[in-house]
Design a protein around this nucleic acid. Structure first.
Lengths: 194, 194, 194, 194
DNA sequence: GATGAATGAGGATTCATTCAT
DNA sequence: TATGAATGAATCCTCATTCAT
């Protein structure tokens, strides 16, 4: 009856932590952060409330962990620091990649947007958000400048709005929104030779 | 010292009701529905909690009233039941009008979107939302068909995404977003003779 | 059915606040701060838990209020800032007064001492304590100097220890400790012409 | 690699048990019994929570063990059952010895006093306390009677109060309290030929 | 109409203790 | 012997709502 090894414990911790985060995200996305109780999360995850607090020091820290993980995944998913000139292929890849990530992390993004609409409450994600958005915007701006769009500034706003709008509409109604067709059209407009 | 007439009382009631709604909206938009307490609203409105419940039977009904008022205003602001053919001028008017309403009711829209991201809460306004969206979508669809856009179906999705995205981006950062310029460009693209 | 006047509300608040403090002190003194629950206090006071939090923002703030009130009472009970020369009568008055206050506020002092033994936890009363002790010690020192005791410094320590020890022993066993006799002896020793 | 003998195991057990008690005392004295968690104790002692429960069946039993050990030490430190006549030397020895023990077990005494101020907790050590106090009081009484103090009864109360008060004041501020000087004066007053 | 004291159900969090390994 | 994940009862605290005045 020797005790578990360090590795065994670590494995247990990793798995349980992920289980809690997944379960919480599910519920947060469905009902919102405030409308989800720790009891609900614990019950759905099949663990006790106490154990949850063994992994996250508070409900809010659990939220942060989920959002940070989501942002990390997004950042890892593409290279936004592309400083050189983006050609059409690369832009197409960026768009495809972005929506692939959004589709894979739909619930996280739903939560993320919901939280973003309460800035005074959740300054938590403010900094992480900038990490994500600023390089993206810079990249878009470069693209529209380099590819001689008429008004790169405004084009960036329009394109961003399109990305955001498509993402939003898709997230709101994932089952019926023809996201692939719309994205294809988006690529058509922005990544083809003029 | 003549006693107030029935109408005067009614007027006072209406004004107080509106005061409560305005105050609540302010707070809901800033911190979210769940993070705003009845006590906060009453204090900011300068009335007692008891009186607030004289005007609204519950916190949720107060929310509904605010959202319904917002949707009513929006519906009143344009004629979405336009069945005939929309010409470019009319489309331009629709866009201008829409963003004028959004700018005027920014906080209400912020609240509205935040609520929309919580399905379990969203049911409160689900039906009213459809009242607003469905005719809009029908109208857009008609416009793109009538004006011989290549793929009216997809065009409607793209255009809606643009509208939603611009609105969202503006609402998120109203102080720095160049909404007028972006909307002008939107009109340029969609309301000019081909 | 006109609402209560400001004064009526204020009266209610004063009385209820005092009721809560009295009840809490009773329990804190009997079982200690940590071993007393808000539920116990509320039940004993005949009110709801919620109401308690209408008067005190936290359990700890309730403790502070009780201790501060006790210290205020003590400070009001005698003039520790006596800078001039204390004669025997005045010293006798000081001793008598002190023990009168201790007897009247026995439970508060029990709580106060118990709390004092956890300095790392309750820095709360540190400052207030100084307010109370420092002038007392200064006064004693003056007395022993002015009245030509052999070693005023050490005499102050001895006298303080006696006061503290008597108070402590009395508080521990108020029903059987002959505090009046002991205090009489104390006065005999320290306030009679040599 | 010879297997440890039974005695070696027992020795290890004793040492670990003592380590836990020392660690716990440290924390109990600093923050109080209730404010110290088992987790804190285990972490500071460098062992697991489970192991701690291998040595003590409950947190309360750990407290009892600490206090009992302290009382045992105290009892072993002097002979309170002196039935014959105590001379001045012996009284001096008693006082010196007592404060030497208090200084050596300062934290234990801090805890002991803190506990004593919570009747509902005090029962844990009530009986052991009597074992310690009653013979002491009897001894003092005898001394004052035998040495023809005017009012031995009251003198016992005064002397006890002095002992308690000095101990208390020292324990409260061990770093600045001139305990040696004060004790010397105490001896001066009570152990010198009249 | 108007007030704010009062309620109590419900939520987040803590922690002594257990137990599989 | 030794580990720390896991439990759940208990605790503090919140807040929408009610109600006597």
């Amino acid at each position: 009856m020797s005790p578990r090894t360090e590795e065994q414990f670590e494995l247990i911790r990793q798995e349980k932590r992920q289980l809690i985060m997944d379960t919480a995200l599910e519920l947060f996305a469905a009902s919102g952060f405030e409308n989800t109780t720790i009891t609900q999360i614990a019950k759905k995850a099949g663990i006790s409330k106490g154990l949850l607090y063994n992994y996250f020091i508070s409900k809010e820290e659990l939220l942060e962990a989920i959002l940070n993980k989501g942002i990390d995944d997004m950042l890892a998913g593409f290279d936004p620091n592309k400083d050189g000139i983006l050609d059409n292929m690369e832009m197409e890849f960026f768009i495809t990649q972005t929506f692939r990530m959004i589709k894979e992390n739909r619930k996280m993004w739903k939560l993320y947007i919901a939280i973003s609409f309460q800035p005074s409450v959740y300054k938590v994600i403010e900094n992480r958000s900038k990490e994500l958005y600023e390089p993206m915007v810079r990249m878009m701006n470069n693209y529209f400048q380099d590819n001689r769009f008429e008004n790169p500034q405004i084009e960036t706003f329009m394109f961003s709005a399109l990305m955001d709008g498509i993402a939003m509409d898709y997230i709101m109604a994932p089952d019926i929104y023809p996201v692939d067709d719309v994205v294809k059209e988006l690529i058509n407009r922005y990544c083809k030779q003029k």
